[in-house]
Design a protein around this nucleic acid. Structure first.
Lengths: 181, 181
DNA sequence: AGCTTCATGTAAAAAGTTACATGATTGC
DNA sequence: GCAATCATGTAACTTTTTACATGAAGCT
């Protein structure tokens, strides 16, 4: 009975009312580095929360674009959220990192192939680190919330750390290669 | 159709045959920082894989301890694993970090309470970083596989980075506090 | 007397993913 | 002409989690 997704959504709705589509976009932009959610999940969770009166919705008819449904957090939703925030936390993150799972098995491939694999990892994470940095620089403003300030810094540090680790890993493997030949 | 858990298990079985119980323990010790799995999942996946002849099992009767079932990887399992290793990777890790989700909402709490919260985060992750370092130092040996070498270093760096970020976050918040008073 | 370790699971519920569906507008 | 963006979902399926169950040995 953790139901963290709903609290993530309620959290986003404390800033301003939004459509499921917009919430999904914000998720992908800001929360992807610590919470993964699929758009179909978001729509379903919003419907459930409306049922439980944690959010309310307003249907907006548009003529040039498809109609939309704007969700707002209710007083009950806000209480529920603050309440949840003060519950004891499980600090252990739950990761599913397919890349690292492959890395953990690299001894099964020839060393040159393994090195190429980690080089791909490195360049991918370097790119992502740069993207996040660029996005954050473009979007930060003085009225950023504390939460966004802290978590976006976290994301940058994590990606840079990931790329740095990949760099170290490549060096390790190249040294093994030398010793072998 | 990714089915990464089964490849994680097959990977562990390339080292030596093991029981579901042992595989679960290894998971918790070595893979928790990049792949989270529950013991009930592991037992079920092993049964499914036996059905598909990717692993075989041997029942061992014990008198002082409960009976156990030792799983070994089959030739088919090994082929399947290598095959999967060479498939294209999704580099985007899927995170579920309840702690960071709470951090992203800290503006909803009084600042002193928020600071206390991140201080808890910091001390927790510092402890974990130390535990991993101690565990790794105690367990590393020259016949460690490349995969374990690389992923255990990753885990240490990640935890230290997490603690370092928490430290930075606390400083940020304390400065905000000063400006406010 | 109660906790941890060893050892393996079932059943049910919750969460998450994938495939599909619709349809107008804007930009390349 | 084709892809992307806006906008919202349903249905089917897979994966994951939670609660429960059993039971002996050894430690505090």
């Amino acid at each position: 009975m953790v139901m963290a997704l709903r609290h993530a959504l309620l959290g986003l709705l404390t800033h301003q009312p939004a459509t499921g589509y917009a919430l999904n976009a914000t998720f992908k932009a800001q929360m992807i580095h610590f919470w993964h959610a699929h758009h179909t999940q978001i729509y379903r969770e919003l419907l459930k929360m409306e049922d439980e009166a944690l959010v309310s919705s307003e249907h907006v008819t548009q003529h040039d674009l498809p109609d939309k449904k704007i969700y707002s957090i209710t007083e009950r939703g806000r209480e529920e959220l603050i309440d949840w925030l003060r519950q004891p936390t499980s600090f252990q993150p739950k990761m599913k990192d397919e890349n690292l799972l492959r890395v953990s098995l690299l001894q099964l491939l020839p060393l040159e192939e393994a090195i190429r694999y980690v080089e791909e990892t490195k360049s991918h994470h370097e790119q992502v680190a740069q993207q996040i940095r660029a996005f954050q620089e473009a979007h930060q403003s003085k009225d950023d919330t504390l939460g966004y300030l802290l978590t976006s810094e976290y994301a940058i540090r994590m990606m840079e750390n990931y790329a740095g680790w990949a760099d170290w890993a490549i060096e390790q493997m190249k040294q093994r290669d030398k010793h072998a030949t």
